[in-house]
Design a protein around this nucleic acid. Sequence first.
DNA 1: AGGTGTGAACACTTTCACAGCA
DNA 2: TGCTGTGAAAGTGTTCACACCT
Lengths: 227, 227
Amino acid sequence: MTDFTRHRSNTPPPVQRKVSDSTIRRLSHYLRSLETRTGPGPVTVSSEDLALEAGTTAAQVRKDLSLFGSFGKRGTGYGVSDLTFHLRGILGLDRVWRVALLGAGRIGSALFEYTDFRRRGFEIVAVFDRDPAKIGTPWGAVTIQDVAGMEAVLARQAIRVAILAVPAAAAQDLAERAVAAGVRGILNFAPAPLRLPEAVVVQEVDVVTELESLSFQLTHPDRNGAG
Amino acid sequence: MTDFTRHRSNTPPPVQRKVSDSTIRRLSHYLRSLETRTGPGPVTVSSEDLALEAGTTAAQVRKDLSLFGSFGKRGTGYGVSDLTFHLRGILGLDRVWRVALLGAGRIGSALFEYTDFRRRGFEIVAVFDRDPAKIGTPWGAVTIQDVAGMEAVLARQAIRVAILAVPAAAAQDLAERAVAAGVRGILNFAPAPLRLPEAVVVQEVDVVTELESLSFQLTHPDRNGAG
DNA sequence: AGGTGTGAACACTTTCACAGCA
DNA sequence: TGCTGTGAAAGTGTTCACACCT
């Protein structure tokens, strides 16, 4: 496991604290903001800069980072490449995650072609579907395989992360099978809540819920929590 | 605007309180859970039932609903069709939302074909792209239009909601143009934070961030806030 | 001076526990 | 008896403000 506490400063690492979901998402945004910088540009960045680029506050940036170490210099800010390095380590991106894509439909295919994954360290190494018309079709370097044989492939390749892009009705069953075959994290695009063991990490991407949230906020302009 | 407080019980409506994002998302899940029921089935549902189906607790369900009225009967639970009706009203789904799709690439096309939108009251009535090879192509009942003429179409059709499915580099500019043309809510698939006026509601769908969150949690099994 | 790191205050959300009604 | 509706308590996340270091 990554030891992100092995930082370069000489302050002791902070005690291991629980990290909230919102903090994790903000860390991802900070990293994106840093990696989007091209060319020479400034060599340091302040919490204020990062806050503006990630849509939060300077105090929030400092609090978030301070959960993992003291990466900044007082009066100066954070070193861009140093902080980038640390953030990648913190997020567990200093390795390649082999990912299985379950479902080769419209969403699956859009995700497969989404090149940003690869750049961030997520490599789709297997694609499964149950449609005989699709099985055997090559997608770039991988070939769509019969979902019936999924377990063997997941185990053989020691795949720990799966993207679930199948209809709601098939989601729970497939998720259980994937977990039984060793998967520990699931990115769920199916509009169905998965019931899985505690230890399995599930992230939901629910487009209908997001649209309905939009609808609520447009309908009740005065009842938004943030306002 | 929907007046969801006009409910059938004779208790007075609760005072208008701010509603948190998490509550809104749970309301959407309750509604999905109710609408997924097929056939006859029980006519009432308890907060416990809803909690199980939506992955939360009974107390949370009751608190969420109590922000909007007293829809249940003590000792009995909530009427399924009654609660469904109220939830649709609360979420602003008792109308059709005309939606513009900005970007006819892979994500845009997957979203366009996603039939659940229509069923929930979101109708994509215009699609824009800047690729001359795509402009003029019919997609079902609509034809891909040149994004150059977007403003006129948005205004003419009084479109208030847009789905932004373009590359990050084009996102900010397009979003600003859409807002200037009357759009008030944006579902943003571009991996770029939008800087827009307060009054505009933006929901982000950020797949890379979700995967990175998964990566973090798998890397630090003991630091998950929920655990 | 300038900007981080952080305890303390504040704000918000969830859980508890029980009164009250069908 | 059974289950809702809700204040109060507990828990969690964010903002403030300033000591401290460069």
